[in-house]
Write a protein that binds this DNA or RNA. Structure first.
Lengths: 342, 342
DNA sequence: TTGTAGGCGTTATCAA
DNA sequence: TTGATAACGCCTACAA
C-alpha cells in the first residue's frame, strides 16, 4: 500500500504538504503542487479511507436506505438509487446501501459508528420511526417522501398533488366528464403511502373544480384484478370515457381489456397514466402520461444532504429544506377528445 | 461520541478487554463479558468504523458495482442488489454502491483506498477491462456473470444454457415441432451479453437433439417491435406452435398480438417465458416460465467474496469458485399439448 | 484471565 | 510557503 509518507518522500516534501495539496486547504506554491501531483500519479496514491475518516471525522459516505418491499415500482427505486450514487460521486461522496429492515437501529448503527456522514431515506412513512432517531442523534438526513413531522431533516418528493391535478385538467380540457381513477392496491392506501394519497387528493380537488364526475377504485395490478376493477367501473358508470391509471401493473391489462370490450383508445375512451415515460412509450397506443423525474429526485436529495453536511461541519444549523418537483404532462396517443354523446 | 475508552471506564476494565469481548478473539470470564456487554448497551457504543478499518486493515465493506445501462431488466438488478445487501449484513459487512461508469479507475480507487475489502461486479462482459485491474491489485472479487478469463476471481451466474434447454425440452415433451425464440434486441447480442447468448445456445442444442425446428428473432421489447417480429415469424413459419420469449418487454405485446390474430393460448400456441415468476404471474394466461433466483445469486456472490476475504486474510490463496445456479421450470397456463395437425 | 502500549495513515494545529 | 507533531479510536502483540 502506498501512503502519504511515500508520496512525500517521492516529492521531497513533508506529508502535511501532500495533504494540503490534496485538500486545497492552504496556499501551496505552484512548483510544489506540481511535484506532489506528479508523485501522486506516478505512485498511484489513494488516501486511505479509514485513516481519513478517523482524522477528519467525516467518512465522505452517504447512506441510502431503500425499501425491501416490492409493491413500490422497482425500476423507479433503482433509478433513484443510481441517480443518488452518481450525484454523490460528483460531490466527492460514496453511497452505502442499507435496507429498510434494519429500521431505527440501522440508523443508529450507521450514525454512531461514523460509517456515514448523513442518510437519505426512501419510502418514508408519514409517521416514521426513524425520524426521531435522526433528531436524537443529530444526524443529518434527507427524506425522499414527506413525513408529518420533518423537523431536523430535509425532504424532497414529486408534487403528486400537482400530478393528480394535471390529469384532471387534461381530461377536462378534452371534454371528458366521467372519469375513473385506477389506483394501487388497497394496502398501499391503508399504509397511507404519501404518493398514492396525494395524487388522489390532487386529482379529486381539481376534478371537483372542473365539474368532473369520478370514482376511484383500487387494483392489485394483476390481469384478474384489473379485469374485476374495470368490470365494476363499467357497471357503476357506463358513461365513463376517461381513465387515470396510477398502477404500473394495471396498464397493460387495462388496455387489453378495453380493446376486448370493444372500446377503442382514444376514440372511445382516453387513458392517461401516472408512470415513467419509458414505460408509457412501451404500449400501443403510446400513453399520455404524467411523470416526475427520478433522476432529479436523486440529484436534489444529494444536494440537500451535502448542503446540510457542509453547513453543519461549519458549525451552522442547516435549514430544513422542502422541495417538491413539478411533474410534466406528455401528450401521446392514448388521449383524445371525449366522444360525442350517443 | 462514545468510545471504547468510555465503555472500558464504565465497565471497570481496560479498553483491550472491551475490544476482545466484542471481537471474541480471546477468552474472557463470564462475569467480565457480562459487565462489558451491559456497558456497551447502556452507553449505546458502536465502534468507530474509520478507526476500526485503520487498525484492523479491513473496512468490512463490500463494493457492489452496478450497471448504469437499463437494457437489463431493472427489477432483477435491484433484487440482486438487495439480496447482496441483506446477505452481506448477515456476515457483518456493509455494501457500497458504485456505478459501472467509474470503470477500471473506480475499481482502483475503491481497492487502493481500502474503502472496500472486496468487490462484486454485475453486468460483466466477456472481455471485461476491470478484471485485469483486480488481478493487478490483488483485490478480492466476485463476478455476477461469466468472463473469458476469470483467473483470480470467483463467479456466479444462472445456468442459462440449462434454462434454454429446459424450454426446448418442455415444448418438445408437449409435442411441439416448430418453435420461435423471441429474444432481446440485437444490441444485446452484439454486446455478447452472456445471458442472451448462452440461453440461445442451450436452447439451440437441445432443440437439435429433440428434433425441433426453430428460428430466433431479436425484438426491442416495444409493442411495434414485437408486432413486426411476430409478423415475420408467422410469415416465415406459419406452422409455429411454440414461442420461447426471453424479453420482458415483449411478453405483454406478444400475448395481445396472438389473441388479436385469432390464436388462443395455450390451445393453438404455447408460450414459455424466461423471466421472473412474479412477472409471469401477472399475465393472462399466467405464463409457464423458466426462472433463476436473483436472491440466490446475490447470496452466493456474497458467500464467495466473504470466503475469499477470509482465506486471504488468513494468508491463504482463495479458490476461484465458479457457481452456476440451476434454473427451475414452473408450468402454468400458457403451455399445453401441440394442436393436432389440421 | 487481563492490562499496557505501539502503530494503523490522515488531518490539522502550532511553529518556523 | 512549508514542516514537525499531536491527536483521531481501535486492534493486537507482548507482558503479567
Amino acid at each position: 500500500m502506498v501512503t502519504i509518507a511515500d508520496v512525500a518522500r517521492h516529492a521531497g516534501v513533508s506529508s502535511s504538504t501532500v495533504s494540503y495539496v490534496l485538500s486545497g486547504k492552504r496556499a501551496i506554491s505552484e512548483e510544489t503542487r506540481r511535484r506532489v501531483r506528479s508523485s501522486v500519479q506516478v505512485l498511484g496514491y489513494h488516501p486511505n479511507a479509514g485513516a481519513r475518516a478517523l482524522a477528519a471525522r467525516r467518512s465522505h459516505i452517504i447512506a441510502l436506505m431503500v425499501p425491501l418491499r416490492t409493491d413500490v415500482y422497482v425500476p423507479v427505486m433503482m433509478e433513484i438509487a443510481i441517480a443518488v450514487t452518481t450525484a454523490a460521486r460528483q460531490h466527492g461522496y460514496d453511497v452505502l446501501l442499507i435496507t429498510n429492515d434494519e429500521g431505527p437501529d440501522g440508523v443508529r448503527r450507521i450514525a454512531a459508528s461514523g460509517l456515514a456522514d448523513g442518510l437519505i431515506l426512501m419510502d418514508v412513512e408519514l409517521d416514521d420511526e426513524r425520524i426521531p432517531v435522526l433528531r436524537a442523534q443529530g444526524t443529518q438526513a434527507t427524506l425522499i417522501g414527506l413525513a408529518d413531522d420533518a423537523r431536523g431533516v430535509s425532504c424532497v418528493d414529486h408534487d403528486f398533488v400537482a400530478a393528480g391535478a394535471l390529469c384532471a385538467d387534461h381530461l377536462a380540457d378534452l371534454g371528458h366528464r366521467e372519469i375513473a381513477f385506477i389506483g394501487y392496491g388497497s394496502g398501499v392506501y391503508h399504509r397511507h403511502a404519501g404518493y398514492a394519497e396525494r395524487t388522489l387528493a390532487g386529482f379529486r380537488d381539481r376534478a371537483g373544480q372542473r365539474g368532473l364526475r369520478f370514482l376511484h377504485r383500487t387494483c392489485e395490478g394483476t390481469y384478474e384484478s384489473t379485469a374485476g376493477t374495470l368490470a365494476r367501473v363499467l357497471a357503476d358508470r357506463p358513461g365513463t370515457t376517461g381513465f387515470v391509471v396510477q398502477n404500473e401493473g394495471a396498464i397493460g391489462p387495462l388496455l387489453t381489456l378495453l380493446r376486448t370490450s370493444g372500446r377503442t383508445v382514444p376514440e372511445d375512451v382516453s387513458v392517461i397514466a401516472l408512470c415513467q415515460d419509458q414505460l408509457a412509450e412501451q404500449f400501443a397506443p403510446r400513453l399520455t402520461a404524467v411523470t416526475g423525474s427520478a433522476q432529479e429526485l436523486g440529484r436534489v436529495a444529494v444536494e440537500q444532504i451535502v448542503g446540510r453536511l457542509a453547513t453543519s461541519s461549519d458549525g451552522g444549523r442547516p435549514d430544513d429544506d422542502r422541495a417538491l418537483l413539478t411533474p410534466a404532462l406528455t401528450v401521446r396517443e392514448s388521449t383524445g377528445p371525449a366522444p360525442l354523446l350517443p
